[in-house]
């Protein structure tokens, strides 16, 4: 009887351990859409922050940026020539539209002097 319960406990620990190990190794990607933004502002504001070298705190963080669409490309939209927002699912927007996007800030591109966001989506907030 005692042997049996020890066996049961060991099996349970192994199963739980294997399951949580698996969950750790193969955890889901972040869901940017559901995260709270650490920065909310205009394209101009976020670009200035990076241009002045103070943007490091925003790297890999969720941000909400608003501005006027200055360029529409395949898979991405540029706001006020200052923020390039890459979409997983491209919305239908046209140049000149006023939009707000939520996305993950991946850094500052010195070549074009734009801040880049990925996993973006349009938001109404």
């Amino acid at each position: 009887m005692k042997k049996k319960s020890v066996f049961m406990i060991v099996t349970l620990v192994l199963v739980v351990g294997a399951y949580s190990g698996y969950r750790y190794l193969y955890k889901d990607h972040r869901n940017i859409a559901e995260e709270d933004a650490v920065f909310t502002g205009t394209a101009q504001q976020i670009q200035e922050r990076f241009a002045q070298g103070e943007g490091d705190g925003l790297l890999n963080q969720t941000v909400i940026v608003s501005g006027t669409v200055s360029q529409v490309e395949e898979g991405s939209v540029t706001l006020d020539e200052k923020v390039q927002s890459v979409f997983a699912q491209m919305p239908s927007v046209s140049e000149g539209a006023q939009v707000t996007v939520k996305g993950r800030c991946i850094g500052y591109d010195d070549l074009f002097e734009v801040v880049k966001l990925d996993q973006s989506q349009l938001t109404t907030q």
Binding site: L25, Y26, K27, D28, H29, R30, L59, N60, R104, I106, G107, D109, K116, D118
Partner: peptide
């Protein structure tokens, strides 16, 4: 940008 590299496994 290094943060822009996406992997299948998070």
């Amino acid at each position: 940008l290094i943060q822009g590299f996406r992997f299948k496994v998070a």
